[in-house]
Design a protein around this nucleic acid. Structure first.
Lengths: 340, 340
DNA sequence: CTGTTAGCGCGTTCAC
DNA sequence: GTGAACGCGCTAACAG
């Protein structure tokens, strides 16, 4: 039924080893035999079985991609870009969607990628224990989003600089009561929310603004979370006149909450996001732009390079992509009549 | 270095086949031996090689998922849901992102999933030739989005009914010049845009409104495309007072174009979308809601069922999920002073 | 219940 | 330049 290498060998009147050599472009086969074998193989519709070939050679031509929340714009976009790079290079992608703690645990305990992939790309840098598990696979590792990790090539941005530019923008407009919507309580342990928060604290301090813990709320990196967080901030005794949301999705949730409270953006409250979501321009959101697809593609390329040149020195542990503040319509000086 | 089944067998003082049986929960192993083997395997950190196991058994415990544009909200969400179902059932997912014609061609000519997957889920029903290629794999097939295909279990919605409810809503509000932004020119051949367009034509006819081809524009299912399409519609001699966009992303693009033209939604122009994108509520978009994650999960479940009960009759060729019109703030009666 | 014997389909030595 | 033999790690069929 399914045609194997011996079928091709028989049909071409050669041995299986010659077919193997010919089809993979290895030396030691005369050009005419090679051409003839290629023709026969094409005609028979022969395709080498990956299982058999990786069992024999140890190479799988498959990359394991570990991603949290593929459905979110950010990770979906990173994944899309990375997959394109991999498949263009002839690699297949084994996808592991590790959003829930359950799925995460299942993955890291059974490690289904073992002996199945040539390398692993993690779209969110895993915690130390998980990192160790991945390292035990003995394959090249790369990642996006998060701090540096031993054994990992990570592509990211300068989160502190990005967040600083956002908060500083609000300070420069004259805001003094600046709230922050963060994603601190996520199930995952990563440095991004920490770095962005530190930048927020630093800029406030540098501007001589006293930090008010009541002005911080958790939005869990979702639209709904952002909405809840903003609602909570508005319920405080002295609501902020401006808000820095650690992601555009949370910023959009905040905008929804504000609208529901009949507050106008930016007249009553200014909002800055982070990411430059594809719909940020639609809602006129001022935000910190970062190359999202670019990070996925770059991480994929760096991983492939390690595969191609195993002896070459590992790329720098941490590659930084450029960011920039994009001014749109959700930020303005504070309203002299006050937020209410 | 890497521990194999014989290592476990030796350490446990049994044969390799017993280890295999024990670890996979097959009958014919005493409970105490099974427990002892499990302990030894765990202690050694043994995990069966998928390549070897699928080579020997023919089963791969892997599902091939073919998706266009993973980065888009719709497909990302469908993929996310499907992956969760698969991985919860112990299956891995091989992802093929077939957005570009190039990637598509590469995939369907070399068919890298051959001998590598137990089943295939296509998030967008492929064209007839591609369908035939998939059928040649000889594995169960399922899909979302698109018309019925022989050999395919497809989960979808009633596109005509959905589009009809959207356009009829505009008609009922009193609109007579109703534009449509479609996604006709995509590289893919699928029935969705055709069905939605037909519904648009039907409702116009039923309302006694003459169809004006100048009121149709292509938005390619993207935000930018929607913006361009709306801009084109506004440039016509008699612009529409309402627009039906075949996707929320195009609707949001249209809203951006309107805002740039200093036109107000819905006072100057009403807009209806399709999908109920996660951000539709943020921008107050009236739209046709469909269970996006639900379709992915359902298609995945139907596929798994075929795998579990190969002899059972195939599920209905076409499963229809419910839809409903969600009224928000982008639609209103036409402005008596006219659109300009 | 358990061990032995054969492959699964291919890549990789070796010989020639 | 080409073929024969072996092994990758595992599962399945057959003995016992």
């Amino acid at each position: 039924m399914t045609v194997s290498i011996t079928d091709v060998a028989r049909a071409a009147g050669v041995s299986a080893s010659t077919v193997s050599r010919a089809l993979r472009g290895r030396p030691g086969v005369s050009e005419e035999v090679r051409a003839q074998i290629a023709a026969v193989a094409a005609q028979l519709g022969y395709i080498a079985s990956r299982s058999a070939s990786s069992l024999a050679s140890g190479r799988t031509y498959t990359i394991g991609v570990v991603a949290p929340y593929i459905g979110r714009w950010f990770f979906g976009t990173v994944l899309d870009a990375a997959e394109q790079v991999f498949s263009a290079a002839g690699y297949d992608v084994l996808l592991y969607n590790l959003g829930s703690p359950d799925a995460r645990k299942r993955f890291f305990t059974s490690l289904p990628v073992r002996k199945r992939v040539d390398a692993v790309l993690s779209l969110l840098i895993p915690d130390p224990a998980e990192t160790a598990a991945l390292r035990s696979l003995g394959v090249p590792l790369a990642g996006t989003v998060g701090g540096a990790r031993d054994g990992f090539t990570v592509v990211g941005i300068d989160d502190r600089a990005g967040a600083e530019s956002a908060v500083r923008h609000l300070v420069n407009l004259g805001h003094r009561r600046i709230g922050m919507i963060s994603g601190a309580s996520g199930p995952l342990q990563w440095t991004t929310p920490i770095d962005r928060r530190q930048a927020y604290l630093d800029v406030l301090a540098e501007a001589g603004i006293e930090h008010d813990p009541a002005l911080e709320a958790d939005g869990g990196y979702t639209v709904e979370g952002g909405e809840r967080a903003m609602t909570a901030l508005l319920a405080t005794s002295r609501p902020p006149t401006a808000v820095f949301a650690q992601s555009d999705e949370m910023a959009m949730g905040a905008m929804r909450a504000l609208r529901r409270h009949r507050l106008t953006v930016p007249d009553d409250v200014s909002v800055v996001g982070f990411d430059d979501h594809e719909l940020a321009e639609v809602v006129g959101l001022t935000t910190v732009s970062q190359p999202v697809a670019g990070q996925g593609a770059e991480a994929a390329r760096l991983l492939l390079r390690q595969l191609d040149e195993p002896d070459a020195e590992r790329p720098a542990d941490k590659v930084r992509m450029p960011i920039r503040l994009v001014l749109r319509e959700t930020t303005a000086p504070p309203n002299p009549r006050g937020p209410q």
